[in-house]
Simulated scan of single mutants.
Amino acid sequence: MNLRISILLLLFGFTLTSCEWKSDVDDPILNQLGTGRGIVTYTGYEPLKDKPINLHFYIPEGDIKAMPIVFILPGTSRNANDYLDAWVKHFKDRKVIAIALEFPQNHYSTSEYIEGNMFKNNKALPEEQWSYSVIEAIFDHVKSETGNQSVQYNMFGHSAGAQFVHRFVTFKQNTHLNKAIAANSGWYTVPDTRIEYPYGLKNSGFSDLSTLTHLFGSNLIVALGDQDTDPNDSSLRHTPEADAQGLYRYARGEHYYSESQQISQTNSMIFNWKRVIVKGVAHDFEAMMVETADYLGL
């Protein structure tokens, strides 16, 4: 074999190796919702049609119509595929439609993601323009495409995804949400009407008792890794308002839960939340998912 042919064969083999899909999951990659794994780009929500969202999905074999649906919200890196990898790795045998939502950074800034695009230049935007509002539209889309008959969906969010989740629960009423996990959020919108939004409800437009009744009556699980205690984490926000909640994520989560519980008791409101402390875990989305997913009852 001459040198030229040897080099070409070597380059060809390298190309095949470098193009190999690296996931441990052996399901086919699909470009439409159906049994298996894939990614589809969703633009069907008219108010945000110019801001596409990538749906990284896994649908196991079985009766798709009867499967529960879980939406998974990733952290600030928007690495939805990694979150779906973790779900499939640990929960592949569960008959659940799992969809990790990627809000692309070139279409959704950090605030538009974690704070839902409720305000622009300190001006309140119509609810239909909120990033939160696309969830219900995606739920309808998934049901339409798969024939699924679920009447509710569930949510899991970690870090920035947990910020999205707990504010979604706070501000979006009359949804089809069943249960939601907010794991290791960096900071919170505490339901305190004396504290300025986004750290509290003051001047948010949602400071009345109906907001609190809805929020405290929701099935929200506040999940906290008890080792998520690094005050110097480069991705952790430090402002006077955020630091008033605590100097690290675990402390802030404890503050959020205890303050919310106290406010609900002061107003004689039903409090349906759960606090889950995951021992020995720091800021690890996969470990938090594994240790808390059962609280969704899927």
Rank of each mutant, 00 (worst) to 15 (best):
T41D: 05
T146V: 08
L125T: 03
I72N: 01
S207Y: 12
A80R: 02
S234I: 12
G38T: 11
T17I: 15
Q265E: 14
V169M: 09
K172P: 07
M289T: 12
K95C: 04
P60D: 12
A162R: 01
F57Y: 03
N174H: 13
L8H: 00
D26K: 04
A282L: 07
D192C: 03
N106Y: 05
G280Y: 13
G246W: 07
K123C: 07
L48S: 03
Q261A: 09
W87E: 10
D50W: 01
S111A: 07
E127L: 07
S204E: 08
F12T: 07
L296F: 12
G217V: 11
A287N: 14
I277G: 08
C19L: 15
R78N: 05
H238V: 09
A162N: 07
A100C: 05
A137E: 02
S144P: 06
L101G: 00
H255K: 04
D24A: 07
Y250W: 06
L101C: 00
T292A: 12
S18W: 11
F271V: 04
Y153I: 05
F119G: 03
G13R: 03
L8P: 00
I263D: 10
M118F: 04
A293K: 14
I59P: 01
I64G: 03
E61R: 00
H176L: 10
R275S: 14
E46F: 06
T43F: 03
E196W: 09
S260F: 03
K143V: 13
F57E: 02
N174R: 08
T213Q: 14
G205P: 11
L10Y: 12
V165F: 05
A223K: 02
E241S: 03
I195W: 10
P47E: 14
S144N: 13
L177N: 13
I138A: 06
E127R: 05
L125C: 08
P126Y: 10
F103A: 00
L220R: 07
V276E: 15
L10G: 12
F57C: 00
Y58T: 04
R37N: 10
T15M: 14
F139W: 12
D228A: 05
A180S: 10
R94S: 15
G62I: 01
A100H: 01
G62N: 01
D26Y: 02
V40C: 01
L3C: 06
I7F: 02
R94N: 15
A86V: 13
F119S: 04
N54P: 02
N121W: 02
S258G: 03
N184R: 06
Y257N: 08
S204L: 05
H283S: 09
L10M: 10
L101R: 00
D50Q: 12
F103G: 00
E115L: 11
S133T: 12
V281H: 13
D24I: 04
S207K: 11
L84C: 14
V281F: 12
E136I: 14
T193G: 06
H158I: 06
T193H: 06
E127D: 13
N79G: 13
C19Q: 15
A124D: 10
L236H: 08
G205V: 09
E20N: 08
E259K: 10
V70F: 05
H176V: 11
S150Q: 15
S109I: 02
K120F: 09
P104A: 00
K89T: 13
L125H: 06
Y250V: 08
T189H: 01
N79C: 06
T193M: 03
I181A: 14
S109V: 01
K120M: 07
L201K: 01
K123E: 15
D50C: 03
R4I: 11
Q262K: 06
V169H: 09
P74T: 05
